[in-house]
């Protein structure tokens, strides 16, 4: 199977800090991958290099065999890539429905945008708050709105940066379910700290540490790897 996302020697430096350090990463079509690692390991920076929010200082990014290194975010997005950022990136002053419609309109055009918006609202149980300004919502609700934005674009590659953060137990379970459903049509990379959550969705796990890939194995092997325990010192693995 050919990889749909690949990085070669991807590097991102901020002054003296190397946030992403020579990362070789491959993702297969319709794969579900978890990305874990301690705070500051470079997970979010890695995502930003993939989406074009940051221009990597070294290395290459390939998406479906096309080199996208240094592309602008809108151009990368148009390939069919959706990202949920760590801090929910939503339009606070606009109602939930408008937030999702804007994303749906770009992908589907005027005719089909309304339908795509409605189905994203249904799927994420946002109907009761569909006309509420996003700025008035709780963190968990905003997470759901942002996921609604992402799924209404119907991307085939989805990057989720801590999608379950700030959610109640019930919401987390629902999120795991949704990720499973989305995985039928899209490859997904999930960054998470919640190990329970990772166990519930993961197959293969990549562990980042200090900008580098430490281990890349199936979930059980990773959880039992002493190096992983070491970098997560103090955290329950």
């Amino acid at each position: 199977m050919a990889s749909i996302l690949e990085t070669r020697g991807l590097t991102m430096q901020f002054g003296g800090v190397t946030a992403v350090d020579n990362v070789d990463f491959k993702l297969q079509r319709n794969e579900l991958r978890c990305l874990i690692g301690p705070n500051g390991a470079g997970k979010s920076t890695f995502f930003k290099c993939l989406t074009g929010q940051l221009k990597p200082t070294g290395g290459h990014v390939f998406i479906e065999n096309e080199e996208t290194t240094g592309w602008d975010p809108h151009a990368v997005s148009r390939l069919g890539i959706g990202i949920k950022t760590q801090v929910p990136s939503v339009m606070d002053g606009l109602p939930v429905r408008e937030n999702i419609w804007l994303a749906a309109y770009r992908t589907h055009g005027r005719e089909r945008a309304r339908h795509a918006t409605d189905s994203a609202i249904e799927r994420l149980a946002l109907r009761d708050i569909a006309n509420t300004a996003v700025g008035r919502l709780s963190h968990g609700e905003r997470q759901r709105v942002e996921l609604g934005i992402v799924i209404s674009m119907e991307p085939w590659l989805i990057l989720l940066d801590e999608p379950a953060a700030g959610m109640t137990g019930e919401e987390v379970a629902r999120m795991a379910e949704i990720i499973g459903e989305l995985n039928a049509d899209a490859a997904i990379v999930v960054v998470e700290h919640d190990m329970q959550f990772i166990r519930s969705i993961a197959k293969k796990v990549t562990v980042f540490n200090q900008g580098r890939i430490l281990v890349e194995e199936d979930v059980d092997t990773v959880m039992n790897d002493p190096r992983v325990r070491d970098v997560y010192l103090g955290k329950k693995v």
């Binding site: 929010q53 602008d72 975010p73 939503v90 606070d92 408008e98 934005i149």
Partner: peptide, 22 residues
Amino acid sequence: PFGRIAVAIRENETRVELMGYD
């Protein structure tokens, strides 16, 4: 749509870019 996207840009430029708008 042009106006609605313009307002969205005012609200959150990064998100609008990530939606695929120039």
